[in-house]
Design a protein around this nucleic acid. Sequence first.
DNA 1: AGGATGGGTGGGAGCGCTCCCACAGCGATG
DNA 2: CATCGCTGTGGGAGCGCTCCCACCCATCCT
Lengths: 344, 344
Amino acid sequence: MSRAAEQEPAARPTLEAVAARAGVGRGTVSRVVNGSPKVSAKARAAVEQAIAELGYVPNQAARSLVTSRTDAVALVIPESVAKLSSEPYFSDIITGVSAELADSDLQLLLVLVRDERERERLARYLTARRVDGVLLVSVHEDDPLPELLERLELPAVLGGRRSAQEPLSYVHADNAGGARAAVRHLLARGRTAVGTVTGPLDMEGAAARLAGYRQALAEAGVPADEGLVAHGDFTERGGRDGMRELLARRPGLDAVFCASDLMAAGALRALREAGRRVPQDVAVIGFDDSVVARHTDPPLTSVRQPTEEMGRLMVQLLLEEIARPGRFRRQTVLPTELVVRESA
Amino acid sequence: MSRAAEQEPAARPTLEAVAARAGVGRGTVSRVVNGSPKVSAKARAAVEQAIAELGYVPNQAARSLVTSRTDAVALVIPESVAKLSSEPYFSDIITGVSAELADSDLQLLLVLVRDERERERLARYLTARRVDGVLLVSVHEDDPLPELLERLELPAVLGGRRSAQEPLSYVHADNAGGARAAVRHLLARGRTAVGTVTGPLDMEGAAARLAGYRQALAEAGVPADEGLVAHGDFTERGGRDGMRELLARRPGLDAVFCASDLMAAGALRALREAGRRVPQDVAVIGFDDSVVARHTDPPLTSVRQPTEEMGRLMVQLLLEEIARPGRFRRQTVLPTELVVRESA
DNA sequence: AGGATGGGTGGGAGCGCTCCCACAGCGATG
DNA sequence: CATCGCTGTGGGAGCGCTCCCACCCATCCT
């Protein structure tokens, strides 16, 4: 078998080849490719033509090796709690992130973290600085990843925050405000025994929604009743279990605020099983205004958070931080809004 | 400002540093890192200790430069038709792909392609061979991407195929069989005027579902009636419009098979608007058995396809193809299954 | 006229790794 | 005892790029 027989896949042209063809030096080609202004019009034209003729595409690995940039960012989604497909929130974040990234020249690495092993793999990956920055959503209070990011001084933006003192950059929704608006709406419609199914309280967002719920009741002079608070985990099953618990403890309740649409869907199921009509007997409000909200029976009144925009904004903050690694962080709150449908 | 003042972020140790510390040559360290068997136990131990002490992590860019592997694969999702968040199919594919990839050492690049511009960007990216392989879902007949992949001889696996003669590797579900089972089920329950809302027929999967529908009717000796066929696009809106069309043309229809759950949800809406009860007046069956199916009113009978497993399988095929680029392709069909709920 | 300025340019050095070749050491063989 | 493998091993070469310095040649000022 002769050497020539194994047809080589026409080795890609290098920057050097372009330089030769354009009759300039490597430096000049590099300048053109990277958009430096210090190139004469003539040289630029020659180089651009040579690039077109040769079909030159820069070798990213070689570039990376010397610049130690990777032109990639990671979007990290802990899948510990919810599956990607049942959580439209994640999909919307992805959509926003991807859209915003499309205008930059960065690639999106999607990293789903399911367990400890995968977290360690990610840790190694980040330590190797194989990305220029990290977007991290669905953070829990005791999540070790944010600390790692701080330690590595890797540009990072969180979706949601660990606490009100979060030192890293983050984007989050006005969870407390949204919850307050939801509960106010219920009270304004004459509901008097308003329960709630919370999310996992080690997530600041879930805690804030509970706080908003309490705030609205307090403002209205309704005495606090811990029997009206059940703890869920953002899943549908959690919502159903929470609702059952609530019904068992306070059979007379006439409204419930669920900290996510998925839990609200579960609550709806529990209510149906218990023979309660929605909204006549019990009004229900969810949170997220996800695609789920439009398909439940009845369609769900829900607190809308601009998830896709949060994704976009996260990218913008991250790009800023990558551009100037001076450790100044930005923290942004996006407004929420009550979308009234039939369930309340 | 002195040079020392700008604290350097403790430059990462190189392979050379590890070699020095372990008292061996670069080659030996490289062998250990890459798991070559040709290393004495003694040398291996010394190297491993040095790696641990120094916290050495290989520089991927340098490795890439010489091996011209990237250790990354791209999952390409054309978002032209459906939004990621309203299409649980995509999320499930992502989940499966990510899970299967976690065991390899490959990274997942997620590329959503929204428009022509983004497709060209992707084309450049692929031309630059910045990934070792590509997973492509939701392919249309005239999609230019598969051809590009062939031309570049880039390992690739499709989710779904362009046609029955698809030359590339692919994984797809038994769409025709699933549709047939659905329609048989309807006929067996005594339905006589069974309509369908199709997906975009330039996708083989959608066409196969229509074919399955026709086949089941033919088998049962029901004369074909093109008035019972409406064309949708897999979206909820498309389902609603298609259903309206069907009702206008054939008011007497008593069942409808929709080529996706999302369209079935839209059909449900149209039926409700038209005052038809489901399933009493009109039975409805969807396709995908996605999360949507469980939340509609009534819950949707649907053809389940093992989406997550399809994602996993796509990765397995891709890894094979990357391992031995000998152009032998594999094409796999996964079974579908009717999941009966309340809508039919 | 001569010197100073500065935009534009070429090319050496080097990023951290793998590949591969040459060669050392050692037991088995004729 | 010379010869022949083997297995391990060290290290040169080179992947394709950016960075940076030295240098060239107009242009401008004095």
